[in-house]
Design a protein around this nucleic acid. Structure first.
Lengths: 347, 347
DNA sequence: TTGTAAGCGTTATCAA
DNA sequence: TTGATAACGCTTACAA
């Protein structure tokens, strides 16, 4: 390449300042020169150097995205939502994977500062005080996605879904179907939103209906098929009375748990009902189709990106807010209705 | 921030050149000054500005990735492989989605040129002459991933899997299980690697065994559940003799086709066997578990990134090569063995 | 071994 | 309305 603004200026017989003005529409330029510049740009197929531009404007039109694992479809969909907003605005998106490790997350924060990104969307696992402290003294604004601050401090702008409420509603739905013995296979303990919050939702809903939650009814897993399988195995082996329904915190765990139940000779949903979380592809196409809590991660990505742009635009913008996207209970064949009149399944 | 190399130089009481030398390890610096500089960097928490650096070195340590859809797990896994290599090398990855549209692909090529990326990994759908011509006169090297050049010109470095051979092997496996009437639900017609090449593999394998391929046995789809479902429906309704096995070009299509077969009252695999492609999560967890062709998209991403770095390092590097990663036939419950002695299932 | 100064390709500030 | 020219923050000859 190596065709610079000077080449264009020479070609159009104007100064480089004029070329710059035409490109950026920043000041009035006479129609004649304007036309000359445009044709010179075309003729030389000039592409302004974003590095030189960024050096002086202090804007790179790049935003960063930190997620734990891009191969996880949940994050794929989230990223797609983010991308769509950024592409519309002409922004470039830099994707960074943290493997869910605090150390990597912190390192990425620094690396992205070096890259001079204009803003960051951060999806952590356990967003603790250390992380937040660090984020608050960065040069670029950060919006949390998918995950709230642990300890509920809420010092940063956050876009997520209401994990506690979503789980609460799911349990409520199971109860409305006549279930009273409901087990729970949750997320990892150190995962604030998907571990603690969802467990809390389970406990609150059970308590509301005066139902018991024996220790053998509560398992934790890493969202995988195997975790669902082994969680269900323990529930099966250690519970005095088998649950009639199991709520798992990911569709994949629910499917693992169903597989385990089938291996034990139980039929689904007659002997035991299952409920998942996320509403991924798997849920629709499993047999029986899985009832689940639908979270639109795409919408979440879109909203988070929009919030980020908002806080980038309003320079002062130290807004701290949590915005939840709505969830929805999706009723499919994996849940049995034990009574004739079931309640309204939609949240 | 605004802490620059000058601040560090002042703090350490040296020149900015010395600071630069220490940072980049580019020339001998006395241990004493070196130490002073390091502590000054720490004290000021200085982060070099990559824009200023890139402006002069003409390297941004950024590579681009163009894919059609990041929410597609295949591309998620591919991207993960790419990321792992880039992260090790300290490179930043910019993800761009093209929706599989030629126009967007071309626009992204330009946009990424403006971004001054150091190299590009390109996963297209129909990589035709126009696209390749354009790529060959870019300032940065490009490696094709997942998709070969249409028309088989092979003017660019390519990392993919052998679609024709993989399909051939899958059909061969079905034949070895005793199947002789085998239908095929392929990818979109305009998709060179997954449409044409796989169909060719099917035809060659069938011909090799002297088996017929009536028009009613061949369908095309867009890899979706619904495409598999409706493809199977047409095969069912229009074929004189029903096939005993169906090969679909994605796991999702295979699962859609299975669902359709079940709805028709057929049992799987007794009445009809099914074979998928990709070996995604779905295949493992469907009922019955799906036999499929495993493609390691992660490895493909890794290899592609390595090839890109190779051609970035060797400046001349106009290598043009196709490198295939190996595939593997995965045998699961969805395929029935019609004869006692089946052949070796692994490719 | 160290420092000075000339770029890199833009935008922004002044004069004209 | 236009054009010089000084930044922006770094790397890299060239001098010392």
């Amino acid at each position: 390449m190596a065709v610079t603004i000077e080449d264009v200026a020479r070609e159009a017989n104007v100064s480089i300042a004029t070329v710059s003005r035409v490109m950026n529409n920043t000041k009035a330029v006479s129609p004649e020169l304007r036309e000359r510049v445009f044709s010179a740009i075309r003729k030389t197929s000039f592409r302004p150097n974003v590095l030189a531009r960024g050096l002086i404007t202090n804007r790179t039109y790049t935003i960063g995205v930190v997620i734990s694992d891009i191969s996880n479809p949940v994050f794929g969909v989230l990223t797609k939502g983010i991308n769509s907003v950024c592409q519309d605005r002409g922004y470039t998106v830099v994707i960074c994977e943290s493997d869910g490790k605090r150390k990597k997350e912190l390192a990425l924060l620094e690396k992205l500062a070096e890259q001079r990104i204009d803003g960051l969307l951060f999806a952590g696992v356990d967003v603790n005080r250390e992380l937040i402290d660090r984020m608050l003294c960065l040069d670029y604004p950060v919006v949390l996605v998918t995950q709230e601050e642990s300890y509920g401090e809420n010092r940063m702008m956050t876009v997520s879904h209401d994990n506690q409420r979503a789980t609460f509603d799911a349990i409520d739905f199971l109860v409305s179907c006549g279930h009273r013995r409901i087990a729970f296979i949750g997320g990892p303990v150190n995962d604030y939103s998907s571990g603690e919050k969802r467990l809390e939702g389970y406990r609150l809903a059970m308590a509301k209906h005066g139902l018991e939650t024996p220790g053998t009814y509560i398992e934790h897993g890493d969202f995988s098929f195997d975790a669902g399988f082994s969680g269900m195995k323990r529930i099966y082996e250690e519970s005095e009375k088998l649950p009639t329904a199991v709520m798992a915190c990911s569709d994949l765990m629910a499917i693992g748990a169903m597989q385990c139940a089938r291996n034990m000779g139980l039929s689904i949903p007659e002997d035991v009902s299952f409920m998942g979380f996320d509403d991924s592809e798997l849920a629709r196409y499993s047999t029986p189709a899985l009832s689940t809590v639908r979270i639109s991660y795409y919408d979440e990505g879109v909203l988070a990106a929009e919030e980020l742009f908002r806080s980038m635009d309003s320079d002062n913008g130290e807004e701290t807010n949590i915005r939840y996207i709505p969830h929805k209970i999706i009723r499919r064949g994996s849940v049995n209705c034990l009574r004739a009149t079931a309640g309204n399944p939609t949240a």
